[in-house]
Nucleic acid binder design. Sequence first.
DNA 1: CGCACCACAATTTTT
DNA 2: TTGTGGTGCG
Length: 786
Amino acid sequence: MISEDFAFLNEKQREAVMATEGPLLILAGAGSGKTTVLINRIANLLKYGKSSDTELMPEDASEEDIIIMNKGGEEARKCASYLPVAPWRILAITFTNKAADELKNRLVSSLGDKANDIWACTFHSACVRILRRDAERLGFESSFTIYDANDSVSLIKQILKQLNLDDKTFPPKSVLSEISRAKDSKITAKTYSERASIIRDIRKIRIGEIYTRYSEELFRSNAMDFDDLLLYTVKLFEDNPDVLEYWQNRFEYVLIDEYQDTNRLQYNFARLISGKFNNLCVVGDDDQSIYKFRGADIENILTFEDNYSNCRTIRLEQNYRSTSHILDAANNVIRNNIGRKGKELWTDKEAGEPLELYSADNENDEARFVASTIISDIDRGASFKDHAVLYRMNAQSNALEYAFKRNGIPYRVFGGTKFFERAEIKDVISYLCVVASPSDDLRLQRIINVPARGIGRSSLDKAVKAASDEGLTLFEVLKNSDKYPELSRASYRMREFTAMIESLRDSVKTQRLDEFLDTLLEKTGYLKMYEQSGSPEDESRVENIKELKSNIINYMAEAEEPSLPGFLADVALYTDLDSYNEDNDCVVMMTMHSAKGLEFPTVFIVGAEESIFPSIRSIGDPDEMEEERRLCYVAITRAKNKLYITAAKQRMLFGRTTNNKISRFVDEIPDEHIVRKNVTRGYSYSDKAWDRNYSYEPDYSEPTSGRPIIKTGPVKSTYRITPQKPQASKPVPDFKTGDRVKHRAFGEGVISKMTPMGGDYLIEIDFGGTVKKLMLKAAVNFMGKL
DNA sequence: CGCACCACAATTTTT
DNA sequence: TTGTGGTGCG
């Protein structure tokens, strides 16, 4: 029996692994072993083909085979096995590069090298591969470049200027999301404009003009934005039956992960590419659909069974991640949603500890609670990386970062400014793009005057106008700028610039990619610009550029045929979370959205207040509220062993003080699963503050031995430069050099040095050999005088 | 053309 | 409160 091969799976999982034929919907609850199922399903296909899911005799069975099969037994089973599916006939789609890499790695490690031929990639990279082959059919060159969100915004801004439209009335980002929504419904710029004029919607008419121009510009630049990758792939399929047939024949089995996050284009893509064999397996969780604002359409998963009438549905409800207190909390919250398939997670794990609600006085108190709780966990032998702090908005990370930084808690913030969105990285990438693609006007404009080359906005605008008037690329105009009287002033410098780019285009042909990067950085004077100043920001920029170089080296090692366009395509689809490295022993801080798919022993959900979570924008809209509740469900189910929820009675946000009620989601958790520690406490910075503030946790003063050694100093974060903010002018607690103190995390020590710093003191404490540097005002919350 | 200063707005963001 | 982007001046 094939099922013996998958005896380690639970019944439902096994069922999902063996149901290889036809459309299949796997509703996989959080932590239900979804990836395991995906991997084993592919393993099953590679090993047994469709055998586990059919009673038909293999078409190629010989008479002899049939005789053996009729006898039954082991020999018969081998015989009855349909030919294994060739790895290259399997397409497995995920949403993130990280998930794709993970899938691929796990496939290779359990199935061997042949798994490398499986297409395990994101929607977007699958589309890129498909488009590279046939982009000419759409009028694009196959070397088309990919515009990221920022590139798109810049282009829209430029167009607004050209059309003399006000960016207050037409905020680039909302225009873009309007365009994106149109593309999602396959509405072309032309159709959009026509519809706008029929309904005489003046605003839509304008947006139609922008859309038209935007599409033209992209086309002219031989570029596609993220939506285009899908849109044009679908269009390519629809307009070219032979192309569609080619891919349909190739992919006998299609798997799609995180199906609840697909948009309509992705639905179209999936339907088309799996159209021949109809072996489409989608895996997802309607309760974890949290990306509506990005176009994800929960209806895709809710109506899958209607769209595929012969579809089978399998629910994976056994959870292997969390304790039952946590699961029950999650179940009770999500139960309040109406638009869902309905699932109830269960576990045979122990009940564990109930959740804890801490109602803080304000955001600093909240942060301190989190910090002190983490430190006492560390006392008990836990690692920092076992802890995650999840919030609704990135802006909430500030108070937490303070508390962590001042107490030597290493942390890492995800989100915010991403590596590939940093100015210096985008600049260098832009240089590379300009070298690779002569028609990339947008990126050319970005870097032409970085470092300063005396080619300013006004001259550049004239050149842009000339280019658009004559239908030439900007580069061509710049190269021949001596022919344009209006460009005479900057002409020399422009031609100097184009000559430099052209010489770089020569170098790229002969040099290795990493060497070429060095050449580029040198010839353009880009690196020099940052190396001279010596300011810490610039140093970190140089570091980041080095980091980019290691990216290139990585790429060269992995790619079959490394090339500059190849690298750029990779980079365009690469984001930060992809490089989340759990080896670093850091507390992880991120939004609840970013946390999807991750798990941590201890989780803090902070800011559980009405109008923060649920967000103020969703209050009053039932659909939005359900989405927030799903987000809550996602957040709760990240926790394996312990979940803390915190709310602040008063919170300073965006310079305003607000008083919010505790989140309705907390009320939805039954009392038996949550301990509500609504201790109203005084708030003071006196030297006894420590006693008072933390008296709610009676076992705190127990000294613990065997505490792991904590690395000193803040951990370098590649992801964000956290500026040192000035201290508020609060009274400085009464400590002096030579005082003996006891710190909750670091034990007993002596203050060896105190340096006044911004209304506070930087204190150095010698904990029996290890010297820790702390900010006094914050440290006082974690230590007392002996 | 570059820099400084001021006004303004700030959910969430896999590609 | 924070960061960013636009404007105006040197």
